[in-house]
Amino acid sequence: MTTPVALRDVTYAYGTGDLARPVLRDVDLSVAPGEVVLLTGPSGSGKTTLLTLIGALRALQTGSATVLGQELAGATERQRTALRRRIGFIFQQHNLLGFLTARQNVAMALELDPATNERDRLARAGEMLAAVGLAEKCESRPDQLSGGQRQRVAVARALAGQPGLILADEPTAALDKQSGGDVVRLLRDLARRRGVPILMVTHDPRILDIADRIVAMEDGRILPATEAEPASAP
């Protein structure tokens, strides 16, 4: 099993020339198989940019990043799209398609595989919804679900495609303490059973306890582990 995420000397800047504003400087980061890594830090510390780079949503500028065996330096749009299919994304907002039922939303993540047929996809989607405790809400549309339920559908969607990596960006931001905690624990448990590593950006101190490792960032750099460790101790 290779390391799912391995970043070396990643530097990224917005803008060009004199206006270039570096947001990541010489970032080294690796995530081991099955590991749950939380990325924390103040706004503007570059953690979201780092997440979009690992998720192949932005092109790498300098440095090297291997995600699920794919080298991202110089990767084509097609390669990046193919890689994204192997990553489960969970966003701040649930971003479910409002005109589809929960089950159809989850099945959308499976339609990317042309080898599946409709019956299998819906059956898989139903299983995933059952796994997040929404078996009876399969046919509900997102606007008929509570915030926590929607985010659980998003978790089911992220996991349905059997991803090799889960990337989550403040998944609890729009949720209250109780449902936020429920969602991330559910995510962790489901990912853990499958051995899928999670890289999660969060500001939320209430969910730090799910982490195997906490990585703190500031000004585009990753702080040494000794400085990061106290942040996790309540």
């Binding site: 099993m1 080898a115 599946t116 299998d120 898989r124 059973r193």
Partner: peptide, 30 residues
């Protein structure tokens, strides 16, 4: 990294049995 089962895999921790891995996708795609 080389272990086939992770330390917290249900098989090792004695958690409720993990759901069976999903069946391989059948080749029915049009």
């Amino acid at each position: 990294a080389e272990a086939r089962l992770l330390p917290w895999a249900p098989e090792l921790t004695g958690d409720a049995a993990a759901p069976a891995p999903p069946p391989p996708p059948s080749r029915g795609g049009s």
